[in-house]
């Protein structure tokens, strides 16, 4: 879509668009270009010179068992975060949708966690499951379960998943709730008259109608799990134990900043660029015509 009526001149629009273009160029394109360029080199240990290695860094990465493991970790993590945030959200939204009065109050309460930063959420959950002072871990101990996410990789993964999914429940709830509210009542009533009970109506009518929203949320939550959960992992596990919670984004950080391995970190950035690119394309291609609010 284009405007029919436009203003004349070319200097003014260039000046108007300049701030955004300059900032994008300096802080987005140049660094991204640098990442691609650096991914083709291996710097010497003193950072004085670097040697061109072509796709050497990539070949090394793809054969590196830690990197492959990080891919797998990221996949498991993203799937779990998505499931743990979407299912409870849908459940709550379905219940809230049945209420005529009071759903506003519940909604207000439920959006709180969205405002809590992932890193702060990490601290809250760490506090509950802290091996020394955590309330939940203490009660688990009373029940005979010895919780220790510092040593146990599976428990560490469980904790970062729950802490990451927690704030997203609010977000998903809002979208599911809006979608459910827009399902025409007449359709549901008609089914009810035909004698379809609640679950029958839910799976037969409501769920298909909100599928576009669910699919949209699926993509958005995967993107979130990939790129926005750094704070949770950094505060709770710092990628451990034995790299069992080192997702790809965390590895770029730990190899680049902590390990100072610039070539490898840049190559990882480039791989992530491809991943974001794919996810963005999916988002635009399939999610465009999704909801009818």
């Amino acid at each position: 879509m284009e405007k029919r009526v436009t203003f004349r001149g070319w200097l003014l629009p260039i000046l108007l668009i300049a701030p955004q273009v300059i900032i994008s160029a300096v802080f987005f394109f140049y660094p991204a270009g640098q990442a691609i360029w650096q991914s083709l080199f291996i710097p010497d240990p003193f950072g004085l010179s670097s040697q061109f290695v072509g796709f050497g860094n990539f070949e090394f990465l793809l054969s590196d068992k830690f990197y492959r493991k990080s891919f797998l970790t990221t996949a498991i993590f993203s799937i779990l975060v998505t499931l743990c945030s979407m299912i409870p959200a849908l459940f709550l939204a379905v219940i809230a949708d049945r209420l005529i009065k009071g759903s506003g109050v519940y909604r207000t309460m439920l959006i709180w966690p969205y405002a809590v930063a992932p890193a702060v959420a990490g601290v809250l959950w760490l506090f509950m499951f802290n091996t020394r002072v955590g309330v939940v871990s203490w009660y688990l101990g009373q029940l005979g379960y010895d919780w220790n996410h510092v040593l146990n990789g599976g428990e560490a993964m469980g904790l970062v998943v729950v802490a990451s999914a927690w704030g997203r429940i609010s977000y998903n709830f809002l979208f599911f709730f809006a979608a459910l509210q827009s399902v025409p009542r007449s359709v549901i009533e008609a089914a009810a008259i035909d004698g379809a009970h609640f679950w029958r109506r839910f799976f037969g009518i409501v769920l298909p109608l909100i599928t576009p929203t669910a699919f949209f949320l699926l993509v958005v939550n995967v993107v979130y799990a990939f790129f926005e959960t750094f704070g949770v992992i950094h505060t709770i596990t710092a990628g451990g134990p034995q790299q069992s919670t080192t997702i790809l984004v965390y590895k770029v950080f730990s190899d680049g900043f902590v390990g100072q391995d610039l070539g490898s970190s840049s190559a990882q950035s480039v791989i992530l660029l491809v991943v974001v690119g794919l996810l963005t394309v999916i988002q635009f291609k399939y999610v465009e015509k999704r909801v009818h609010y």
């Binding site: 802080f27 140049y30 990442a35 770029v252 900043f257 950035s269 992530l272």
Partner: peptide, 8 residues
């Protein structure tokens, strides 16, 4: 997150 080192 994907351009941290060069942006830094």
């Amino acid at each position: 997150e994907v351009r941290i080192v060069p942006t830094f």
